[in-house]
Amino acid sequence: MVSAFKKALESGKFVVTSEVAPPKGTNLEKMGQHIELLKDKVDAMNVTDHQSSVMRFPSLGGALMVKEMGGEPILQMTCRDRNRLALEADLLFASSRGINNVLCLTGDSVIFGDHKEAKGVFDLDSSQLLGTIRKLEKGKDLGGNDLDGNVSFCAGAIVTPEANPLEPQLIKFEKKIEAGAEFIQTQAVYDLDNFKEFMDYAKQFPVKILVGIILLTSAPMARFMNKNVAGVNVPLELIDEMDTAPKGRKLDKGIEIAGRMIRRVREERMCDGVHIMAIGKEEVVPDIMDAAGLVG
């Protein structure tokens, strides 16, 4: 069964994805509101998996909720918390519930999260998880055993186009595609000229690329990312632009910048779509889409 997201990727349209974050606890109200707001506007919604190693309601549960509410989920799966048995089992369960899009991630170190003494698993890495999905689709598990019943996924991965050094990252990117990635959502990009250069290289591969855009909410937030998030470089001009926006209008400015960037990516046909990360401000994703001239 071909997922709606995969159909969108193959349609040639400019694809839009965003994300929803499961809550810390069982109160699903806010996540439900975000899903309700976005499900008919975006092509698919990533459901984050213990983002930044902070324990939360599981991505599988969140993806199921998206599905039940009529949206199209992309299940994020990191290799940090589960060994190959658990990852395979969760993929089987996802498939059984019609969750057929998966984003394969290595996962942040547990050191960054709220369970700092936990064991980081990393039994598989992101490219091996992609390979696992392709193997399950052939009816075999990683132990080489036959599976009863079929699975089919649209599998993707990430890349950091501004990693330093870049070359090792690109080798990994190529291995992910070789292992079976059909789509790539990039780490946040702010310098579109650099991104264009990346795309000149990436276009040769049979993979759909969605540029990652993180909503800026303030100048300090941008500076924080520059200092603390590997491979994210917010140029000084954008930080200044955020800084000079009037008080109380910072978020509007961030929406304007994100919209402006997405519009340029689309108009110049740089890549296949956009992945909008609003990080806690999911309710403004429709505003970003409006600013970008995207019809939801």
């Binding site: 940090r80 290595t106 996962g107 890495d125 990430i158 890349v159 990252q169 080798i171 590997a230």
Partner: peptide, 16 residues
């Protein structure tokens, strides 16, 4: 490698 990765760097690699 902190994560024992055998297929290349993770996205957290930062200026070496």
């Amino acid at each position: 490698c902190h994560k024992g990765l055998v297929n290349g760097p993770c996205g957290g690699t930062n200026n070496g």
